[in-house]
């Protein structure tokens, strides 16, 4: 048996619906159609009245989920593309994220954001949104990179009493496969050492984990052993695991698919420099997408985001200092 990242997301939602009567799914085309990416395929039929099509109204979709969460429900919202969640931004960051702090009542919503670039997606179907959501207090932001994490972290997201932004990467949907679904997993908030190495710590998350692992293969042929840390969740961010790795390697490169200004890579470097400056043998570096909208044409798109080749090039600069 083999299961894809996308199928894992569907299976996690099926399990959540099966196990918890408070769970429902709301989003555009998620009902009989099964979702733009088929992440809810067959669920409307299996769980009548609990997988519901929404109008094209992301603000009202998020507001409805928040109101339902206050009534004790556990809504899962599917934004058709992460990019469209900007329409719901006010509800997510001002309503959901402030709810517990203001009223002492938690707001357990899960917002699924199909994130990241695929060739041909263009500026409005390719964005990665983790940095702007992580900026706001009151949100948990998850960025699973593996089939196993897509499954276990989505189930955990639904169980968490606070609003969770679940950034699932579209590039991983179909080609990433696992033999089976996990029965146990690291908890949210713990990073994973995806590859052990002694020369450089490469901190990354989501689809960039796989580009980074490929870069590490390339660098191994040159004699460098790169340790790859998969953050798994960007908020909370597992600073301890990152710093422990930097303590072993003395060198740091952070890679993210998001835009360079601020963001997760800047945050990781800040924490390492502030808390572990003396551990560093070279200035830490980071690699992000270019500071432009995400291009449509594959030639431009593949030069816009970090790739195994550009990551390896950035790593050499840190390694050769």
């Amino acid at each position: 048996m083999s299961i894809t990242y996308l199928e894992a997301i569907r299976e996690a939602q099926a399990k959540a619906l099966r196990d918890d009567p408070r769970v429902f799914i709301y989003g555009q085309d998620v009902g009989a159609f099964g979702g733009a990416f088929k992440a809810t395929k067959g669920l409307a039929k299996e769980f009548p009245g609990r997988v519901l099509d929404a109008p094209i109204a992301e603000d009202a979709m998020a507001g409805l989920a928040i109101g339902a969460a206050l009534e004790g429900m556990r809504p899962i919202l599917e934004m058709q593309f992460a990019d469209f969640s900007t329409v719901a931004f006010n509800q997510i960051v001002n309503q959901a994220a402030t709810m517990f702090w203001r009223t002492n009542i938690s707001c357990p919503i899960t917002v699924r954001l199909p994130c990241g670039g695929t060739a041909g997606g263009g500026p409005f179907h390719s964005q990665t949104m983790e940095a702007i959501y992580a900026h706001y207090p009151g949100l948990v932001v998850l960025t699973p990179a593996t089939v196993e994490d897509a499954y276990s972290m989505l189930l955990e997201a639904v169980a968490i009493d606070d609003p969770v932004i679940f950034c699932e990467h579209k590039f991983l949907y179909y080609h990433l496969k696992a033999d089976s679904l996990p029965t146990e997993a690291l908890p949210v908030g713990k990073a994973r050492i995806a590859r052990v190495g002694r020369d450089l710590t490469l901190v990354t998350y989501s689809a960039m984990v796989h580009e980074s692992l490929a870069a590490a293969d390339e660098l191994l042929s040159e004699g460098w052993e790169v340790e790859v840390v998969d953050l798994r969740s960007v908020k909370p961010l597992d600073t301890d695991t990152v710093i422990a790795s930097v303590a072993r390697t003395g060198r740091l490169l952070c890679v993210g698919e998001a835009w360079p200004w601020g963001g997760v890579t800047a945050e990781v470097i800040t924490r390492v420099v502030c808390e572990g400056y003396d551990l560093l043998d070279a200035p830490p570096q980071r690699l992000n997408a270019k500071d432009t909208p995400v291009p449509y044409h594959p030639n431009l798109w593949s030069a816009h985001r970090p790739t195994a080749r550009s990551i390896a090039a950035a790593a050499r600069k840190v390694l050769q200092r």
Binding site: F24, G49, R50, D59, A60, M61, A62, G63, L64, A65, I66, G67, A68, A69, L70, E71, G72, M73, P75, N90, Q91, N94, Q95
Partner: peptide, 17 residues
């Protein structure tokens, strides 16, 4: 204006329950 859909959500949840 963002409060209206939150009321909708409460009513929606009650109907489900």
């Amino acid at each position: 204006g963002a409060m209206i859909s939150v009321v909708n959500g409460g009513l929606f949840a009650r109907r489900m329950r």
